[in-house]
């Protein structure tokens, strides 16, 4: 009989010593501290501040005597006639850029580059990253020249061949330019995601389709597209949010013009009101209210994404417990 009877003096379960307890707090704090401070200062605090400022009449004129005005800024936004124009602009901007470029062109690029020899495919995909890493200012200069008046503009030079009357396209078709310029940058995001999604389709499915006699087009239509609908949904939602908030390229290309608010979108408007001296009196409160609406949309949308795309399930428990 080797049954083990434990004769050890069973002391009452020892509490974790204070040192170990302290360590469990200090070590993670050391590792996450710097990021936490930065994120707190420049994400959390600003979210709250944006909403707080939006409830005041803070502006350059009132900076020394800020008053709480409740929802007055929001009411002003609601009543302002320009709001509707800007809302319409935002829809045009987000809708068209998203449909034709960030998803449309991205899908076309992903499909083509996965259907040609890999060497070519990678080369083309890499090339499409170039606009994304090109400094926005230079990118804007290139577009300005691209669309410039005759005899300088490249578009005009090309269209001349077809007898199209030359013009400054940035002024003549500002939306076309704004959408295309943003879209050429935005397409690469979807392209990369779609490419890896297409690549991760099990080869068996594609073979099966080939065996069944599907044409390339049928294969794309009935096998590939249905299988990457989640990545497409992801790109649509993710890019909607970032387009809603982005105004850098518009600022550099048209600055909301030409003329009165022709290409002024919501986020650019918030920026103009709150941070640009263009109108003389900088209205922090009003601008913050405009931004706060985007912030709230952003917070809600990103929380929804977190749920819908089940990011949480990717979180595995660490296998080392000791700290």
């Amino acid at each position: 009989m080797t049954q083990q009877t434990v004769t050890a003096q069973v002391t009452p379960h020892m509490d974790v010593s204070w040192r170990a307890r302290l360590r469990r707090f200090t070590t993670p704090a050391f590792f996450t501290g710097p990021a936490f401070v930065l994120v707190f200062l420049f994400f959390f605090l600003p979210v709250i501040l944006t909403i707080l400022i939006s409830l005041t009449d803070m502006s350059v004129a009132t900076i020394s005597d800020i008053k709480f005005v409740g929802l007055k800024n929001y009411i002003r936004i609601w009543r302002s006639r320009t709001t509707w124009k800007i809302l319409r602009n935002t829809f045009i901007y987000v809708g068209f850029t998203l449909t034709f470029f960030n998803v449309g062109l991205a899908l076309v690029l992903a499909l083509i580059t996965t259907h040609i020899p890999d060497r070519w495919g990678t080369a083309f995909r890499t090339f499409w990253l170039l606009p994304r890493i090109t400094p926005s200012v230079i990118y804007a200069i290139m577009w300005t020249w691209f669309t410039a008046d005759a005899p300088y503009g490249i578009v005009n030079q090309f269209l001349q061949i077809f007898g199209v009357e030359p013009r400054n396209w940035m002024s003549a078709q500002p939306w076309l330019v704004v959408i295309a310029a943003n879209g050429f940058v935005g397409a690469s995001f979807g392209m990369i995601i779609f490419t890896s999604a297409i690549r991760s389709i099990p080869v068996d499915f594609l073979r099966a389709a080939l065996v069944d006699g599907a044409s390339t087009w049928q294969r794309i239509r009935y096998v590939i597209l249905p299988m990457i609908r989640w990545p497409i949904l992801f790109v649509v939602s993710y890019q909607t949010l970032s387009l809603l908030a982005s105004f850098e390229y518009i600022l550099l290309l048209t600055d909301g013009g030409p003329g009165f608010y022709t290409t002024e979108v919501w986020s650019l408007h918030a920026y103009h009101r709150a941070l640009s001296n263009y109108f003389g009196n900088v209205q922090f409160g009003y601008g913050a209210a405009l931004a706060a609406i985007l912030v709230v949309i952003g917070v809600i949308a990103s929380v929804i994404y977190l749920r819908v795309f089940r990011f949480n399930e990717m979180v595995a428990e660490p296998k080392i417990e000791v700290i």
Binding site: T32, F36, V39, L41, F42, F43, L45, P46, V47, I48, L49, T50, I53, Y238, L241, S242, L244, A245, S246, F247, E248, S267, A270, Y271, A274, L275, F284, G287, A288, A291, L294, V295, G298, V299, A301, S302, V303, Y305, L306, F311, N312, V315
Partner: peptide
């Protein structure tokens, strides 16, 4: 877990909207 969730939410969150408040900070 909360920290991770926040990282992900912030990853999707359009930080440009915060510029006004960051200016103030």
């Amino acid at each position: 877990r909360i920290f991770l969730s926040f990282t992900l939410v912030l990853h999707a969150f359009p930080a440009v909207t915060l510029l006004i408040a960051i200016f103030y900070v």
